[in-house]
């Protein structure tokens, strides 16, 4: 019988300390779990957990505080950037992050996110864009693609009637207060690795006091898209990537030579 010698083995991958070891309420195949994990890994690597305060939003990630293992507050719908502003202004030496979906961030919370960015509020925003309202059951969001069917655009988003989707990162990157704004995607391992680097860069922005930082993460919503998890990643790649290009929209000059 073969034996394995564990003595000389090195731990190269483990559960992040910033993430509690518990099952989430997220649907199978949803990329919220991936996004949570990336944020937790980055906070661990930067040794920031003990000084971090999170702000959860309203949507599927309303319970994010059940999974992250650091101080957390839960904001009214769309108001996370304002709440985070209050926290950060009181604790300028702490790390403050918001975790918001697209309905929360760029529909009901458009004013709060825009002004937080304009003020150069030194917070980090993790922005989950899955092109619909997940928690309430898949309604049309500001990010829903033209022609995309949702429960409140059953014949597909008609731009003549419902208007056009908002490219949030591009819009916020026009503001002088923004220090770091990029869009990444969570549809395959390569892009997930790139997303993690971006999240690292966003927190580096905050640590350095370089202003508002946001990583937009294109994400899947298999349940409300009525697709299997694998099909959902393909749908994202084929439909969302052409409309929402992955790019760096704003990178503070002081960040340009950083590498991880």
């Amino acid at each position: 019988m073969a034996t394995t010698n564990f003595e000389n083995m090195q731990v190269i991958y483990q559960h992040p300390e910033s993430l509690l070891d518990k099952n989430t309420h997220y649907c199978p195949g949803c990329t919220h779990g991936v996004a949570h994990r990336l944020v937790a890994e980055v906070l661990d690597e930067m040794n920031l957990r003990d000084k971090t305060i999170g702000v959860a939003s309203v949507g599927c990630s309303v319970f994010a505080y059940n999974y992250f293992d650091f101080d957390f507050v839960e904001a009214p719908h769309g108001r996370a950037p304002a709440m985070a502003t209050g926290v950060k202004r009181v604790h300028p030496d702490k790390i403050v992050l918001t975790y918001q979906g697209d309905g929360d961030l760029i529909s009901i919370g458009t004013g709060e996110i825009t002004h937080a960015a304009a003020r150069g509020e030194n917070i980090t925003v993790i922005f989950i864009n899955n092109a619909n309202y997940g928690m309430t059951g898949g309604q049309m969001a500001p990010t829903t693609l033209p022609g995309q069917k949702t429960t409140s655009s059953p014949k597909g988003r008609d731009v003549e009637q419902a208007g056009y989707p908002i490219r949030t990162s591009e819009m916020l990157a026009t503001l002088d207060g923004a220090g770091y704004i990029v869009r990444r995607s969570l549809h395959d391992p390569k892009h997930i690795r790139q997303a993690k680097k971006a999240i690292r860069m966003a927190f580096e922005t905050q640590v350095r006091g370089l202003g508002f930082s946001m990583v937009e993460l294109l994400s899947t919503c298999p349940t409300n898209w009525h697709l299997s998890p694998v099909e959902a990643t393909h749908w994202l790649e084929e439909n969302m990537l052409p409309f929402y290009p992955l790019d760096d929209f704003k990178v503070h000059p002081a960040l340009k030579n950083l590498n991880f």
Partner: peptide, 26 residues
């Protein structure tokens, strides 16, 4: 100490909410 003019009363009250949660007299 902290003073900030908010973008709206919605912003202001939620900044107060954040500062109150953060432990400040606000």
């Amino acid at each position: 100490r902290v003073f900030l003019q908010a973008e709206s009363e919605l912003g202001a009250i939620n900044m107060v909410y954040g500062a109150a949660c953060a432990g400040a007299r606000t």
